Amino acid sequence: MKSASASALFAGPFALATLSVPDGPAFPALVTADAQVVDLRAAFGDEALSIRSLLETWDTAAERLTALAGDSAQERRPLADFRVHAPVEPRQVFQSGANYRQHVIDLHVAHRDPSDDRSEEERRAEAAEIMDRRANEDLPYVFIGLPSAITGPYDDVVLPSWAEKPDWELELVAVIGRPAHQVTVAEALSHVAGYTIANDLTDRATVFRRDMPQIGTDWLRSKNAPGFTPLGPWIVPAESVADTDDLRLVLKLNGETMQDETTKDMIFDVARMVSYASQTARLLPGDLVLTGSPAGNGMHWGRLLRDGDVMDGSITGLGAQRTHCVAEAS
């Protein structure tokens, strides 16, 4: 059984998780700052309760959860006794591309057209100009992911036999708590219940269609293999996250730091991403808005994921995840 350790800390008095015991069903849980677990089915008197159904009543549930976290008489068990799953099963996953300035510049250089004989400095300047224009025109880049790609924060990541260039992308995730449709930037964060961590894996070799490049990107193929989105370990309520504009994201590969950046490098902040997605779609409780990944991906380092690799990802106040890469038999 894979479990979390007491050293995986988070901001605030509690977080929400989905846990299980061996051979038992997954259940919604409140995890306290001292790594104790309250079974929310018993606390709420609802055997059918899930994290998503809690988020659907977030305006009232949040106050009750705060009270539970401070109730020392509530029955609790150590977190180490449980397996940690992805904290929520979303209906919709909204993914953000090209949202960290330095990351986009690095990718622009790494994905150079073979016929482009300009210097790296010229191509970096071009990418910087594109980023400035996008920011001024307020045009984030959002596409749709599949819930079936989500896996737990400590589960193995299976690298498909067809994936030639599997890459990591650590991301801050906003978890929706109130339905949001055509909300303003000023209103957007009031629809966010909390935040979690995702590693949005991408097979770089299949991002662009080979048969007809004019079609553009192929996100189904490159991003949505089963388990390509490790999520969690928990959802930390928004009230406990001090400043989403200054959170540090760190991803280590086999102990070596590959990504180390703060959300200050975002082109579009969380509120703008949520607002933008809501202009087209109706965001529902439990939905995820991934906000993009900073510089330091495998394409930058010239080192992609392999069988046996271990990824450790953390974000300030949200805890940490650890996943092992396992090659799929060809």
Rank of each mutant, 00 (worst) to 15 (best):
D167F: 05
T151G: 13
G232I: 04
R76N: 07
V236M: 12
A193F: 13
D200R: 03
R209G: 07
T32M: 10
L231E: 04
L139K: 09
L68G: 03
A174I: 02
A35H: 13
S3G: 10
P233M: 11
A242R: 14
W219I: 11
V236W: 09
R123C: 00
R91K: 13
G97L: 07
V38F: 06
L19S: 05
K223S: 04
G313A: 15
S190G: 14
N297V: 15
E239A: 15
A62W: 02
V84A: 14
G45V: 10
D59A: 15
P294G: 03
S72I: 11
W168T: 01
V310F: 04
G317D: 10
L159A: 05
G296C: 03
A43V: 06
P78N: 08
A128W: 00
A80C: 12
E239R: 15
V31I: 15
A86F: 05
L16I: 08
S161K: 05
V93G: 05
A271K: 01
H181E: 13
V310P: 02
A69N: 11
S20V: 04
L189V: 09
H103V: 01
A11F: 04
P294M: 01
P140C: 07
R83W: 06
P13L: 10
P87N: 07
S115I: 03
A26G: 10
R83G: 14
T202F: 00
D156I: 02
V93D: 04
E75T: 14
R272M: 02
E126H: 11
L55C: 02
P226Y: 09
V185L: 02
P78D: 10
R209H: 14
I176M: 06
M258E: 03
V109Q: 07
R112M: 10
N136E: 15
P22R: 11
D309M: 02
C325D: 00
R134F: 00
Q74H: 04
L68R: 03
L253A: 03
R101L: 00
T206L: 10
C325Q: 04
M1D: 07
M258P: 00
I150W: 06
S3F: 15
G319R: 10
P233L: 12
A320Y: 02
V274T: 01
D106F: 01
L172E: 01
A73R: 14
E171Q: 03
A329N: 12
K264L: 12
